[in-house]
Write a protein that binds this DNA or RNA. Structure first.
Lengths: 223, 223, 223, 223
DNA sequence: CATGAATGAGAGTTCATTCAT
DNA sequence: AATGAATGAACTCTCATTCAT
């Protein structure tokens, strides 16, 4: 029956993707051998090539998928929350939750861009630029309407982005900090950095963003 | 004579260090071949081994030196500024300036820890932990004395550290932002994150920290 | 019905043979991969093995079939034309026509013998030796009866054989030279090399040999 | 002393060239593995790459060198013997001697062109075309001045070239046929094919061409 | 001080082939 | 009849490193 089948091991293609994710995140693209991947995925190295092109293709697919998810989530936030304050709060929360719940994917995107060939890299950089533009616009709009204030928008944007991405490097779901608290905390810091009025915690909005991240990644954001 | 020699190209050992720094930062440890290093340093690959041990030794030396400089600077800040507010400001400024002026060294420390063997990594991690402890103590003391306030000290510490380290990833001395402004800006964000009174810009202290970074790295911090 | 089926694509086994012929001739046995074959034949690589044994079996079958046809044709010439002059003319014409009309098969036999294992190669070499013996005997008989003259029969035989086989390497049916002219031309050269009386063109004999090649190969020799 | 050194084994680069020559001729480019080459040359497979670029570079170097020698010899013949009859005789003799004495090089040029990439192949094909043009001009001039006669110059040229190149496939220096006889014999056949007056053997010219081949290849043509 | 020569190990990738479905 | 899945062995080539000179 289909029910019993659901308990089976995931198919090879998925196992390869998972192995690549884990190893690329842990040891880097160049530090990961094809034979590492094969062993972790439980196949022979030759069998990998049934399911993938080159090792670089595998990396590119992972990065593009991750960036696509981030972009999708970011765009949804922009649509759902036109107001600059809640828009930025949404971007921060979606970014932080994505990096906390999917540290492997996001770390690979952050660290392995240089491993891509020039043409492949360009496609990911284009996605990243588009994503960062959502942040840029939110800060710009907020400054224009007076709810944000900063002497250097670009610096603040980059500082906040690096700060939020850093979550992928240290957050552990086993730690004592709940995801919602984490996201809230980062929102507060971001608002502080932009000299905005302290954010009254909008529980409903936070729940919405948690559901959004869940939906976009296809993996539940617990708690 | 030695005087005329001073104008010549730097000695081989220094050229190797510089090549390693550049390449490890640009392509990662595993992405950098010994022949890359040799070519960039202007030697044959065999000649490298007159000046260095293994490739990993080279990486370890770079990382330990960088961490030692950061630690030295951090400790000096702690000695010079016992007050938690100016202490944290000092730590932020020293960290930001170090990362802005020495992005190669700091990026290598941040990104290539995983390339080290377990024992080598432990020594660097110990340094890093000691360094982070300076931040932890500053935040803790500030919270204890009421000048700082945060619902999760550890999270704030990590968020600020990631934010400040991120400078190495994007700051360009060719950009329009001056180093002093950069450091000031990050201090403001940090104070905002800790709900501290806005920092009145202490020009004298800022100069002191700039000199400190210059001294510790042996390379002038311009402007 | 069989009639409608006749218009369809050839069956898989024939498509494989044709693919092997084309690819072995164009890229050599070792330069042709099993996946090349499969793709060209329009099957999966696994499906190939329903119709063939190993890749070498495929090569061997092609070579033996080709040699069998050449031998059959050669033997028929010997039977039809006992006179050394017309016998040699027949051998030349049959060889030249076969190589001009079937350059793939003949090129594979000429170039890929070395790709066969020792035992397989021996069977083809035996056929080739038997075939060359028909030429040897024709030249020997002609010299014995005084219609041919050469200071080194073996050298002349090998020179003529290489010359005639070379046709497969350059003749194009799209060129301006008709097949019958080609065959006649080579006969003249052969007679010159053997100091024979110039051959009066025997149109009827030429037609007979053209029909013979058609029959033996199962493919019409046009014009 | 240098004298004793002269008796030593040839240097690695030369051993590699010799191994490549032998193996490419015997098993073809694709049939020859890098490990075959290494073993035959007496090095490890990694060491090969001290002396060569890719396997294809090695093949290309061999082919270009061979074609350069043939071209050099052919051009010298054209300069030394302007008269079409002796010119063609010279081309035949130089070609036959080169192929008999250097069957490995010439066989590789004849058989492995298809193994080269398009750009590399083009350079060799250009040389081959230039070489064949020497033959074309000799036949054309001879026909124009009436000393040669053929109904299809191009066919005759190709037939003669294939015939002469075939020598590399079967001639053995251990056989009973002397090189000078071989060259003379082929000259006679060529003259017969062109309906030229039988060539009175020009011993002096034959010696000159033997010396030429010796000189161009740097290897003595014995007898 | 500097390097050419050399290599075992391993890189990513393709090979011909088998087999359960 | 046909194939997706799978693999051990081999492929070309590069790796970090050593050593005699």
């Amino acid at each position: 029956m289909t029910v019993t089948k659901a308990a089976k091991a995931p198919p090879a293609a998925e196992r390869i993707r998972q192995a690549a994710l884990t190893l690329f995140a842990a040891k880097g693209f160049h530090g990961t051998g094809i034979r590492d991947l094969a062993e972790t995925a439980g196949l022979s190295s030759a069998s990998l090539y049934h399911y993938m092109g080159t090792k670089e293709d595998l990396l590119l697919a992972i990065m593009r998928e991750c960036m696509t998810r981030l972009l999708t989530a970011g765009r949804r936030v922009v649509l759902d929350d036109p107001d600059p304050r809640s828009r930025l709060a949404g971007l921060v929360q979606v970014h932080v939750l994505s990096h906390a719940v999917h540290p492997l994917e996001t770390a690979v995107v952050d660290n392995e861009l240089r491993a891509l060939s020039a043409t492949a890299r360009a496609t990911v950089v284009a996605q990243r630029d588009e994503y960062e533009d959502l942040w840029r616009a939110a800060i710009e709009d907020g400054c224009a309407s007076g709810v944000f204030r900063t002497s250097a928008q670009a610096v603040t944007r980059l500082a906040l982005l690096e700060m939020c991405s850093g979550v992928a490097r240290w957050y552990s779901p086993r730690g004592r900090l709940a995801l919602t608290e984490l996201a809230t905390h980062y929102t507060e810091i971001a608002f502080g950095a932009l000299h905005a009025e302290p954010s009254t915690v909008d529980v409903e909005a936070a729940r919405r963003r948690s559901r959004l991240v869940t939906e976009v990644w296809g993996v539940p954001v617990r708690r």
